[in-house]
Amino acid sequence: MSDLTISVQLLHPDARLPHRAHYDDAGADLMSVEECEIAPGERALVGTGIAIEVPRGYAAFVHPRSGLAAKQGLTVLNAPGTIDSGYRGEVKVIVHNTDPHATAHIGVGDRIAQLVIQEVALPRFTAADRLSDSERAAGGFGSTGIAGKDTN
């Protein structure tokens, strides 16, 4: 278990610290500090009322909550949303209602997304005239075939 500590600034009276449902969960729940209705097919930018200080060499990633997706069709656009180590503003979540018929309701204190903190490489990028060969080469979207079928 890591002894990494993330400083969290509470920016709103209803803001709460991110919270894990279980001790060893990768994701910590983010809660809404505002109420909103999201019509079918619509999206909303929902405030969590917190700002976080992610250490250099790490990033925070905002993921959808599987229960919200399965039960209400709510997901996170641009998932996972990336919070870089230098960002100190409020963490907000772009929530999208994929349900074609029902309006989704988010209340104050509702768990709307999960926050995952991960170590990230900070490479230098250099221009190259040519890249090394690989088995896959430039094969892209769909180049490995259909699941369950042998592509050899």
Rank of each mutant, 00 (worst) to 15 (best):
P40M: 10
V54E: 00
G41I: 05
A60P: 00
I94L: 13
K71H: 15
D14L: 08
G89F: 08
Q9V: 15
E119G: 14
P40E: 12
V95E: 01
T98I: 09
L4Q: 10
A104G: 03
C36G: 07
H63F: 12
L68H: 08
L68Q: 09
G139K: 13
G86S: 06
S32M: 04
A70H: 12
D99R: 06
E135G: 04
S85R: 06
G47N: 03
A21G: 11
E53N: 11
K92N: 10
M31E: 04
Y23N: 13
L11I: 09
Q72P: 00
G27V: 02
V116L: 05
H19F: 14
S66Q: 12
S143C: 06
K149A: 11
R130F: 11
V33W: 02
S66Y: 12
F141C: 03
V108R: 15
D24E: 12
L17F: 11
Q114H: 11
L17E: 12
K71I: 03
V93R: 10
I52N: 00
E34T: 08
A138I: 09
S66F: 06
T98A: 09
G148E: 08
A137G: 15
S32V: 03
D133L: 10
L4H: 06
D150M: 13
R65K: 15
T151N: 14
V93M: 05
A127K: 14
R65A: 02
A15M: 09
S32Q: 06
R56Y: 15
L17T: 10
